[in-house]
């Protein structure tokens, strides 16, 4: 079967992520053993930060799709909403899971209820779980689409909130390593690997969203064809 663009991006993204993990494990420089409780676990950030970037892309797409459906009633925008929520769920789980793995090694606990960024990101992921499961529980229709698009719009408030959370409430979560005024705290090799990982995750998530939109259009076409047969048989 001929490979589609979305599937090709998924494949390249996946290979890139696997390569990033391998390089993070075997090649990336170690951090100072005095600065961290668990210096080895720090390498999880080559997964954690790029997947958080991918999650923000996914939630951005969710916002655009939700707004597009609410204000334009566009089928394409509804497909974007679905793709964004599914991609947001997958990447959100990746971020939360990798964060828990690191937290367990570094803090001695996988979750800290007082950490604002951790919790706001957890909530963003929960919103994605809600959108995916909730939508699955309802028949497709304008009522379902309006309700979930509204939640998608409200949920987007959490994105900038999560982004600035460690700048406002630096309780336990490490502060930003890129995009800071002092130029960040990464050396060149770390920066390269982080960039490579970010590109790979971007490819994977864009590939996933394209495939997801294709799946939704198939489902809609199948539903229409079945209705045609219902009317005729």
């Amino acid at each position: 079967m001929k490979m589609k663009v979305g599937e090709a991006l998924l494949l390249f993204g996946f290979i890139g992520i696997a390569l990033t993990m391998m390089l993070a494990f075997l090649w990336a420089p170690s951090v100072s053993i005095n600065a961290f409780e668990s210096p080895a676990a720090q390498r999880i950030f080559y997964w954690h930060v790029p997947s958080a970037w991918a999650a923000f892309i996914a939630f951005g797409v969710l916002f655009v799709g939700s707004a597009g459906w609410m204000f334009k009633r566009s089928e394409l925008m509804w497909r974007l909403h679905i793709a964004g929520s599914e991609a947001g769920l997958a990447t959100g789980l990746m971020v939360v899971w990798s964060g828990c793995v690191w937290g367990a090694a570094e803090w001695g606990t996988p979750w800290d209820w007082s950490d604002v960024r951790l919790n706001s990101f957890g909530l963003l992921t929960l919103l994605a779980v809600y959108l995916v499961l909730g939508r699955g529980s309802q028949p497709d229709g304008v009522e379902t689409r309006d309700t979930f698009a509204a939640f998608g719009l409200y949920g987007f408030i959490l994105v900038p909130f999560t982004y600035v959370a460690t700048r406002i409430w630096a309780i336990r979560h490490p502060g930003p390593v890129v995009g800071t005024d002092d130029g960040g705290s990464l050396n060149a090799d770390m920066g390269f690997l982080l960039l490579f990982g970010t590109l790979s995750f971007t490819l994977l998530i864009v590939g996933h969203m394209l495939t997801s939109m294709r799946i939704t259009s198939f489902e809609q076409r199948i539903e229409a064809l079945q209705k045609t047969l219902d009317g005729g048989v």
Binding site: L126, Y130, G134, S137, Q138, P139, G141, E143, D146, T147
Partner: peptide
């Protein structure tokens, strides 16, 4: 407004 408001997993948002 949903067709099945009881089945919509709203409890997931309580955290």
């Amino acid at each position: 407004r949903l067709a099945r408001p009881q089945a919509v997993f709203i409890g997931l948002l309580t955290p």
